[in-house]
Design a protein around this nucleic acid. Structure first.
Lengths: 187, 187
DNA sequence: ATCATTCTGTACTGACAGGTACAATGCATT
DNA sequence: AATGCATTGTACCTGTCAGTACAGAATGAT
């Protein structure tokens, strides 16, 4: 492994694929568009992902999941609730680039792509909601409200992504996130 | 025009296309899957929509837009604000079948399909937010809060669709809508 | 019954889809 | 510098894509 290597590793390819699936969706991301945008030939692609496009998407989803598990869900379960929740909003804004980048998991949930990755999609959101609800309970919120409040926050991020992209308005995304952050701790 | 006619009219085809685009997305909705699911042959399809798939999707979006204009936006602008807002939540729940049916406009906003229909997508959400914010102002809400509150409601519906579909949980959709409805008038 | 028009099924096209085969290359180790 | 394995480009496969052509069936008006 050297800094100047021209050859790829599987780990280098996944982030590139992620951006392409985000922009084009699963069906829109054709092999030729992938090779065109990444400069990686079919040979390499099928070497790293023998299962083809489906394995590529699965690898991307797994990486997304790992990222959220590490930087959002785990802290919510482990750290001081108020701090972890504040970090969640910050991380969400950074990860989604203030609405400039969509949530691949949410996008896959909307069309028939969901069927292929149902378990992964479900787990991603389920664990987010549960971790956040847990943090809310630990911060003193009654358990009866915590789940609904957590669902509301997670759903709000997804909605903010849709709307800010629809209106091509990043400011809306930040504004919505700020408001949700306030509401989550006060109400 | 007779009740027993076996031949289609353009107006008959659009709702069928709508469901297909909703389920499969723009890229996923291939001509053969359209003919397969609707039973309408290519001949008829290209007769009604000489511009092909893009014209089909545009027709669907236009119909969606018309529906919301008539049953949501216009009432919000015209009728008693409290009543129109209550009707909006009811209509949203019915139209999206408690999360069993996604918002095509929102789904198109997420991937590159947005580029094709940017103006329509923007207008759909822009007019929704403006009409709702206007109703809120007329109901006594300060203009400084109205827009943000309206954005929040619209984005919340989109997010609820994503999340309820991701978790395959219609109850979540209804619960989220109820909560948003309460928050919109109280807070 | 005729006729012009609207509508429809079938067959076709060239382009491109996902995927495979494999020879050639790059690189770390020795 | 030779070996062995990871990586890559190219050519190719079969199926499906969006779109076209067009003959014929159904329709409404006369």
């Amino acid at each position: 492994m050297s800094a100047l290597r021209t050859l790829y590793e599987r780990a280098d390819v996944v982030p590139l694929l992620a951006e392409i699936f985000r922009e084009l969706g699963f069906e829109g991301a054709t092999l030729s568009r992938i090779t065109e945008r990444t400069g990686i030939g079919k040979g390499s692609l099928y070497h790293f992902f023998p299962g083809g496009k489906e394995e590529m998407a699965a690898a991307v989803l797994a990486e997304v999941d790992t990222w959220f598990e590490q930087f959002v869900y785990e802290p919510l379960r482990r750290d001081d609730p108020a701090e972890a929740i504040a970090a969640m909003w910050k991380n969400a804004d950074a990860y989604f680039r203030s609405g400039g980048r969509i949530c691949l998991v949410g996008a896959f949930a909307l069309d028939e792509t969901r069927e292929r990755f149902a378990a992964t999609i479900n787990g991603y959101f389920r664990r987010w909601i549960d971790a956040l609800a847990g943090a809310l309970v630990r911060s003193g919120r009654p358990a009866s409200e915590a789940t609904a409040a957590a669902e509301n926050a997670v759903l709000g991020i997804q909605g903010a992504l849709v709307l800010s992209r629809a209106l091509d308005d990043k400011a809306l995304f930040k504004r919505a996130l700020d408001q949700m952050a306030k509401r989550l701790i006060t109400s």
